[in-house]
Amino acid sequence: MPPSISSPPSPMLATLGRPPAGEGWAFEMKWDGQRAVTDVRRDGIRLFSRNGNDITSAFPELTGPIAAAVDDHDVVLDGEIVALDAKGRPSFARLQRRMHVLRPTAQLRNEFPVTYYVFDVLDLDGESTVAKTYLERRRLLDGLGLSGRRVQVPPFWTDVDGDRMLDLAREHHLEGVVAKRVDSTYRPGRRAPEWIKTPLRKNTEVIVVGWVDGNGAARNGVGSLLLGAHDDDGDLIYVGHVGTGFSAALRRSLREQLAALERPTSPLAAPPPSRDAKGAHWVEPRLVGDVEYREYSGGSLRHPSWKGLRDDKTPDEIDLPGRH
């Protein structure tokens, strides 16, 4: 019996771009969740986040269903943990209630249940499958017959137009599509052009570098967050501020978290515009968040809206909007 892996393979990542045209591509829907590599052995099961953290205890309701679904196979799976809304659509806002809780209560698990969407298999019964093509790996995955209330294998489509897939994602209020070369091997830890993601809404990860106090109804919390990202030289530069997308409770919670990271000077390589920095509290650049935005042409995000913090990505991974 193969031993459980001490550290999982890093998941393969997609590049940002338009849906490709022509033959040789398979399309999957893009799920608004948390990436997770799962190691299932007869002596136990472990779930790992994209950056290799063990998140098994954060999603205890998944371990039994995943183990039951794979039956007596030893397997390493790649997929996405999602929280579905009342209409059965992945909701990142609902997932936020679970992502940062290491040991959720039964009540929290019942109120915000999660499901594991599996879309790849990296090892099967002790044999690595990463050198096999996408279609070969999907056949192996389909052969496992994974199904259940907490484990699903979403479909994929070939010989279909990428723009039509994007229209379908829009009609069903999904996040977008991912195109994968049918002959592509699995490249752990690589952001490869063989996988192309196309979100319907522009979305980017950012580093929180500071905050400005709120006023009025938001006076006990953050009014806006100051945001940064790394440029091509690796310098941490300012990319704008966000003041929408927060509940009153979240504004207070974020202020408490950021107060513990406060520092006297800006962590940015160059000062932001003085109008944005007025009254700013600077923090150590340790927290990563998600924002939606209309456009970024350099300098500052336009019409950003806060989606939430992420603990599955590290600050050194965050580059400029439109690059990931």
Rank of each mutant, 00 (worst) to 15 (best):
P3Q: 07
I5E: 13
L13F: 04
L13N: 14
M29E: 11
K30D: 13
Q34W: 13
T38F: 00
I45D: 07
R46D: 10
R50D: 08
T63E: 08
P65K: 06
D72N: 05
G88A: 14
A93Y: 12
L95R: 06
Q96E: 01
M99K: 13
V101M: 08
Q107K: 05
R109W: 02
P113D: 03
T115F: 03
Y117A: 14
D120A: 05
L122A: 13
G126L: 12
E127G: 04
S128I: 09
K132H: 12
R137F: 05
R138Q: 15
L140R: 02
L141I: 13
V151Y: 09
V151W: 03
V153F: 14
P155V: 05
F156T: 04
T158W: 05
D159V: 06
D159E: 14
R164W: 15
L166N: 02
D167M: 15
R170N: 14
E171F: 04
H172N: 15
H173S: 10
L174E: 03
A179W: 04
V182D: 12
S184C: 03
S184V: 03
T185A: 11
Y186C: 11
R187K: 08
R187Y: 12
G189W: 08
R191M: 13
R191W: 04
E194L: 02
W195K: 00
I196H: 00
R201F: 00
T204P: 10
W211S: 12
W211M: 07
A217L: 15
A218P: 04
G221N: 08
V222G: 09
G223Y: 00
G223A: 04
L227S: 06
H230N: 09
D231P: 03
G234F: 00
D235G: 09
D235L: 02
D235H: 15
D235A: 13
V239G: 12
G243K: 07
R251E: 00
S253V: 06
L254H: 01
A259L: 02
A259E: 13
T265Y: 01
T265R: 07
S266H: 01
L268W: 08
P273R: 11
P273Q: 10
S274I: 08
G279N: 12
W282C: 04
E284C: 00
P285V: 01
G289R: 05
G289F: 07
D290S: 11
Y296G: 14
H303L: 11
S305I: 00
K307Y: 10
G308P: 10
L309R: 14
T314N: 02
T314V: 14
P315C: 05
E317A: 09
I318L: 09
G322P: 02
G322R: 14
R323P: 01
